[in-house]
């Protein structure tokens, strides 16, 4: 049990990659705080994965809500050893059609949400002299994507955030790394056109889209005690699609 009794906070835990990450941590003994926008979503994952997991309803773009959510986690479960910033949304459209609110909302959830959670856990992690922060970026943040200017900017921002956190908190035995998933079978990618799926299947050396179960082990590595000397890195997990 690599995470026995460690407190792990996973945002965006109600479905997709986040749910699988939460499940993988619980299977390794962690007490997981499952954060999602709805109470039902958060509690559903928590009761499904068990091992003392608890659901927390919180909009990560709301910094006051994040502060009080983290306070509750500390009071209920203890100081988080691991924070996984996975919560993310898309509002895809071409730049000419992209409304201010489409851009702002994606940045506020994907980038500011990660910042809000990091700021909230930084103090208890610094006091504990231990922390592992893993941010979910995306291959779109590294390579761009037509129709995804907002999402790409938010996920590139996550890489810069990761580097700064690594530098700022490293002296307190806190690491911060990012994962850049490729195209993963989730609700978020289910509306992709069939041609695009075929393109991925033909182009990626792995010959298929990824699954949430392909991402979770990479997150667990960056969250482990053994990865102490790895910080500020972004690991692409895309089946080789962008090679």
């Amino acid at each position: 049990m690599r995470f026995a009794d460690k407190v792990v906070v996973v945002t965006g835990a109600s479905r997709g990659i986040g749910k699988e990450i939460a499940r993988a941590f619980a299977a390794e003994g962690a007490k997981v705080a499952c954060v999602a926008t709805t109470e039902n979503g958060a509690n559903a994952t928590a009761s499904e994965i068990g091992n003392g997991a608890k659901g927390y309803a919180c909009d990560v773009s709301d910094s006051a809500a994040v502060d009080s959510m983290i306070e509750s986690v500390v009071a209920d479960l203890g100081t988080p050893a691991v924070l996984v910033n996975n919560a993310g949304i898309t509002k895809d459209t071409l730049i000419l059609r992209m409304k201010d609110e489409d851009f702002d909302r994606v940045i506020n959830v994907n980038l500011k949400g990660a910042f809000n959670c990091i700021r909230a856990v930084a103090k208890p992690m610094m006091k504990a002299r231990y922390g592992r922060i893993v941010n979910l970026s995306s291959v779109i943040g590294l390579h761009g994507g037509a129709g995804q200017a907002n999402y790409a900017a938010s996920k590139a921002g996550v890489v810069g955030l990761t580097l700064s956190v690594a530098k700022e908190l490293g002296s307190r035995n806190i690491t911060c790394n990012a994962i850049a998933p490729g195209f993963i079978e989730t609700d978020m990618t289910e509306d992709l056109p069939a041609e695009f799926r075929e393109h991925v299947e033909k182009t990626a050396p792995a010959g298929r889209l990824g699954t949430a179960a392909d991402i979770a082990p990479a997150v667990l590595f960056f969250s482990s005690e053994e990865s102490a000397y790895v910080t500020g890195q972004t690991l692409t997990v895309d089946g080789g699609l962008f090679l």
Partner: peptide, 11 residues
């Protein structure tokens, strides 16, 4: 105290 300690102290 290093720079992080100073921030914690001020807070």
């Amino acid at each position: 105290a290093d720079s992080l300690d100073v921030v914690e102290l001020v807070m």
